[in-house]
Amino acid sequence: MSAEVVFYLLAGFAVVSALLCITQRNIIASAMWLVSTMFSLAAIYVILNAQFIAAIQVLVYAGAVMVLFLFVIMLLNVGRGGSDLRGAPVRLVAVLIGGGLLAQLFLLGRVTPGGMAVLRGAAAGAGSPMAGFPEGQVAMSAPAAQGVVGAIAEPLFRQYLVPFELTSILLLAAAVGAVVLAKRKL
């Protein structure tokens, strides 16, 4: 199977899982379908040449974050009793909002590297579709020279060093805040 066929299979699986996630009455089932969406996205990241992001997606999202969600669901023992789906008028509003948003975002499906090159004013169609994108060519060739992780570590620890350090402060604040909020008495 070519990469495109696998991509469309995974994309269909991701969309169906996401739809089941928002319509399942049982919260645990809902969370499990969300995990399935995240796994499909991780596989799609591999097809899009972002192997390290795929690994992080499985470890952090499908692993840590969803375990946290399941932990809280089981701790609170919620999900019993009636459905929490809203009534028909709100569902109609949801369809209208979703349809409007999708109509606006639908144009994204027509984006191609050649079209983006035209927007940038570069010479489109000059040989390869990547002709107008030096950064993209670096992104394609850097993993071969530096390895998949090294290619991402380079900009992370040079260009984005200050945001990276600020991230650690954010995580510390979130950890302290979560403890303070969840504790009965301080």
Binding site: L48, E135, V138, A139, A142, P155
Partner: peptide, 9 residues
């Protein structure tokens, strides 16, 4: 893929 590795960061 097109605009450089900063997106993955």
């Amino acid at each position: 893929q097109v605009l450089g590795l900063a997106g993955q960061v």
